[in-house]
Design a protein around this nucleic acid. Structure first.
Lengths: 216, 216
DNA sequence: AGTAACTTGTGAATCAATTCACAAGACAGC
DNA sequence: GCTGTCTTGTGAATTGATTCACAAGTTACT
């Protein structure tokens, strides 16, 4: 398969959301135009995004909502359940552990770890917080797919190395640091301060220096 | 000023971080090459990013660390303090209210709101949670610059309209929904589920369908 | 069966971002 | 002050993403 841009994958996720809404409302078909309007893009963009993966529509008719929903789930790998571990049970880690949006979409929080003995043993939405010393043992047992790192910046790289050694191939990093990971490991970093600075820039430089990012 | 890409602004924020590290270590000058290596990009990219705003370096020498630091702060609008309000004192709202990274970078949480009477009156890191019915009154008084929206999806648009009416010109949205805002309002949306689905895609499609996003 | 009204899928064209490559400036050593 | 070594700043070239535009299907209607 040829290279798929991150922006394309992000839009596919959005399309899936909208399709689920349409499905709930009983619509059985949808046009690229309707999907585009809902997602703030153009019909050509929608068709191009889908064309990377095949031809799912019928000319003159549009797309079957259930079929396209299924295809997108398949493309995005959402047909199976992914096992997630969270390392760092601070404010953000705890919030994520209890976030319903994850479970709903098939991301199962299999374990939560922290280095603070005061936090170990606490229960977050049914999952007990374990001490990080158990990380290797539990990881070997649970075979998690994704590690969410919500530890302080100075511990993040160490934790990343550890979970990669243990076989984790996808990391979502909330520490404000650029993690070094091998080519074979997928990495996404969410940095709140960076986002806020984007807003600060926009406010300071007016609407001419417009945001071209994820939001229109 | 001509249009500045979101990706450029994001990199400028990163350069600023690295400069602060270099400054702390006592370095007085830095080359575009060093900055690039630290940020996972190329020296040409660094110079091009900076060139949108002026010429801050000396040929043969590089950049003065304190000077470039100051320039970047100025460009990003970080010389002043920004007043932030958070609407929604749930898990994520509370975590953000107490996040040190904000304060450190000049983002001052001026007020937190929630609609749940049980939450109203609680204190988050020195800020009392107020009832949303006070939103208009407090906003008129405090004149916040940025609103962080951490309410459920079905309330997010209503809250956005309300703060925009009240004069807020930048919104950071954590609700999993596409907010409609006027051209003149800067908007950033952070959607955790979307990010996780990006990882799910990467895991399902191997390293060929590589992430081209913020992480290398 | 023929016509009109739709809508997809996709090469070609355009627009945007990144990388190349080099002239021009700055300093150090002699 | 001349030579050699750096490193910036920036047009030009390249690479990548989006938009255009239209042939090719599909259905509904007559």
């Amino acid at each position: 398969m040829r290279h798929i841009a991150d922006s394309t994958v992000r839009r596919l996720s959005l399309y899936l959301r909208f399709l689920e809404e349409f499905e709930a409302r009983g619509h059985t078909t949808i046009s690229s135009d309707e999907l585009a309007a809902r997602g703030g893009t153009t019909s050509a963009q929608v068709r191009k995004d889908l064309s990377f993966f095949g031809s799912f529509g019928k000319r003159g008719l549009g797309y079957s909502v259930p079929e396209l929903t299924g295809r997108l789930r398949q493309i995005l790998g959402l047909q199976r359940e992914w096992r997630v571990i969270i390392i760092g049970a601070g404010k953000i880690g705890a919030a994520l552990a209890q976030y319903e949006g994850f479970r709903q979409r098939g991301f199962h929080v299999a374990a939560v770890f922290d280095s603070d003995p005061a936090k170990v043993g606490q229960t977050l939405d049914g999952v007990v917080v374990r001490h990080v010393s158990e990380l290797d043992r539990v990881t070997a047992l649970e075979q998690p797919d994704i590690a969410v790192i919500t530890v302080p910046a100075d511990a993040a790289q160490r934790v990343a190395d550890q979970v990669i050694d243990a076989g984790v191939r996808a990391i979502m990093n909330f520490a404000p640091i650029r993690l070094q990971v091998p080519e074979s490991v997928a990495l996404k970093t969410v940095n709140m301060a960076l986002e806020l600075e984007g807003l600060s820039f926009a406010l300071s430089n007016g609407r001419d220096a417009e945001l071209s990012g994820r939001d229109a």
